[in-house]
């Protein structure tokens, strides 16, 4: 004779049909005679039935694509090493700090460049005049103004 405790430990398997025939027959005999185990079996069977018939829900069609896109976006952010973050931050700080100093220097540099370009131009023009004068002297066409 099976005890109620023994029977109740097997009711889940009985409700799922996962029990051998001999064992099932012994359980059935007990269930016919024991109201408490019968009530337990009824509830167990009902829960198994409800679970088996419970609907399975699906998320929206683009769910997987959205998840993977987000995964890749997060992964891209995470692949930046702490050293790179520090380097970028330091370069930003340096740029912000150096701009007020470098801007006037840049203007001075432009002025110098312009002056030098003007001087170069003046030198070119002067050398052209000298070369013209020399040509006239050598070919005898040069007549001093005061003569």
């Amino acid at each position: 004779m099976m005890s109620c405790h023994e029977v109740q430990s097997l009711l889940g398997d009985l409700a799922r049909g996962a029990i051998e025939q001999n064992e099932a027959a012994r359980l059935s005999t007990h269930l016919r005679e024991c109201a408490e185990c019968r009530a337990e079996f009824e509830l167990e069977s009902r829960l198994v039935r409800i679970g088996a018939n419970a609907p399975v829900f699906a998320p929206p069609a683009d769910f997987a694509a959205k998840v993977v896109a987000e995964w890749q976006r997060v992964a891209a952010v995470e692949t930046v090493t702490p050293w790179e973050i520090l380097k970028n931050a330091l370069s930003e700080v340096f740029r912000a700090a150096s701009d007020p100093i470098l801007q006037p220097l840049l203007l001075v540099r432009c002025e110098i460049d312009e002056t030098l370009a003007n001087a170069r131009q003046a030198l070119c023009e002067a050398s052209e005049i000298v070369s013209m004068t020399l040509k006239q002297v050598f070919f005898g066409r040069f007549v001093p103004e005061n003569k």
Partner: peptide, 15 residues
């Protein structure tokens, strides 16, 4: 592969 994995288990997790 990631998309295939999500598709395989999305209903289980969502439900």
């Amino acid at each position: 592969a990631a998309e295939a994995l999500v598709r395989r288990y999305q209903s289980v997790v969502y439900t």
